[in-house]
Design a protein around this nucleic acid. Structure first.
Length: 382
DNA sequence: ACTCTGACTCAAGACGTT
DNA sequence: CTAATTGAGTCAGAGT
DNA sequence: AACGTCC
């Protein structure tokens, strides 16, 4: 669920933090993208008339490869260099939430099966989209494709959004490219929204700058995190009767959840029983991520024959289409060699209070010269 | 009058040709 | 048994 | 821009 209503809170209280950016101005940007989320969207959206996903002759789904291939190339054509971040194990705190979602999906699965039986394509289409899950195979397919395309990816130990935030914080990338607002709660200095369908549709890219969010809300990062917990996050319940308006004013007045619990009338607004807000807070402050210094993020030359062998040979793609797509990739790649605009970006000033990782900050500049680090390729780490 | 809940809805990609 | 979106929007109804 | 198609 991300953070419930956070985008509206920001729009209302810190409008200066939102900036519409023409896609052209994004040229040269490196961006961290949540791969599992992208795959999920492709599996839902890339379908044919009857509501079935695209498949090869063996019946293996190809919708996600389709989407990943063309979207990635489109980004490159705009000078945007993505690094994909794959989810690891969800934190234990999320299991309650996930269980609830599982129950919902069972209902949708039954409904989809029933609709398929009776040939009700309309309802089959509707319900089958709610039964989509991203499997290990989907993830592995995409990793294989990305590797062949020369596009880096990272396997996060836990939440991809948290890993994206760390990459942006460290300066390895300019921003996290996501629709998920809790990337901000994880501390990304810049969040780029509507990045994916900005060119295809007429929607502009929207950049959200964390420092300006805090400025507009008049909060420290720690206060912001507590506010996000009050708004409602994936890790624990929130206090009934406290919505966006009261959450903002309570944090402004009392500064943290402990004080709010002291001062708040617990008859009117009882806190959830055994409320693990402190553990949730800790997940946001110090999420389980791989340190940016340990990650080598490099864009390499695509292996055209490898991509053709995989997509055409194994997955039944049209060879002409694939080759011309790869040609686009090669062309834009040689054109942009070292993205320029991104290098002028200065990391946003670090908000007060955060516990870990205070030292790096200057490595955005420092990293440009040196490129050694561990093992040859970009993946690794788990 | 304002605020919040909860139940509900919807939409979700990209290419190439026309 | 290896998967568990999300955001945005509307509405009525109730609590403050 | 709309549309059929991609696999």
């Amino acid at each position: 669920m991300g953070i419930h209503g956070l985008s509206k809170v920001i729009a209302d209280n810190a409008p200066a933090a939102l900036k519409e950016v023409p896609i052209k101005a994004c040229f040269g940007r490196k961006v961290a993208v949540d791969a599992s989320m992208s795959i999920y969207q492709f599996l839902i959206a890339v379908r044919q008339q009857d509501g079935m996903q695209l498949t090869n002759e063996a019946g293996e789904t190809t919708s996600h490869l389709m989407g990943m291939l063309y979207r990635t190339i489109r980004m490159f054509e705009n000078g945007i260099k993505p690094v994909y971040v794959f989810d690891g194990k969800p934190p234990d705190m999320k299991s309650n939430e996930l269980k609830k979602r599982g129950v919902k999906r069972e209902g949708a699965e039954k409904a989809a099966a029933a609709a398929e039986e009776t040939g009700d394509t309309e309802n089959f289409d509707k319900f089958s989209r709610r039964t989509v899950k991203v499997t290990k195979e989907h993830n592995d397919d995409c990793k294989k494709l990305l590797k062949l395309m020369g596009v880096p990816y990272i396997e996060a130990p836990c939440e991809a959004e948290a890993q994206c935030a760390i990459l942006a914080k460290s300066g390895k990338v300019y921003a996290a490219g996501s629709e998920d607002m809790d990337t901000l709660t994880f501390g990304t200095p810049v969040l780029m929204r509507h990045l994916t369908f900005s060119e295809a549709r007429k929607m502009p890219v929207v950049e959200i700058e964390l420092a300006k969010v805090l400025e507009g809300l008049e909060m420290t990062m720690d206060q912001f995190i507590d506010m996000c917990i009050l708004l409602g996050c994936d890790y624990c319940d929130s206090i009934k009767g406290i919505g966006p308006t009261r959450a903002v004013s309570l944090i402004k007045e009392h500064k943290n959840i402990e004080t709010i619990l002291e001062k708040l009338d617990s008859k009117k607004y009882p806190a959830p029983e055994d409320w693990p807000y402190q553990a949730a807070r800790e997940l946001f402050r110090a999420p389980n991520v791989t340190k940016a210094e340990e990650l080598d993020v490099k864009w390499e030359a695509p292996d055209e024959e490898g991509v053709v062998a995989y997509l055409v040979g194994e997955k039944g793609f049209n060879e002409d289409r694939v080759r011309s797509a790869i040609q686009k990739l090669i062309k834009t790649r040689t054109g942009t060699t070292q993205g320029r605009l991104g290098d002028y970006f200065k990391p946003v000033e670090k908000p007060a209070g955060s516990t870990s990782a205070a030292k790096r900050k200057m490595d955005a500049k420092a990293a440009s010269g040196s490129a050694k680090k561990k093992g040859g390729s970009f993946m690794k780490k788990k």
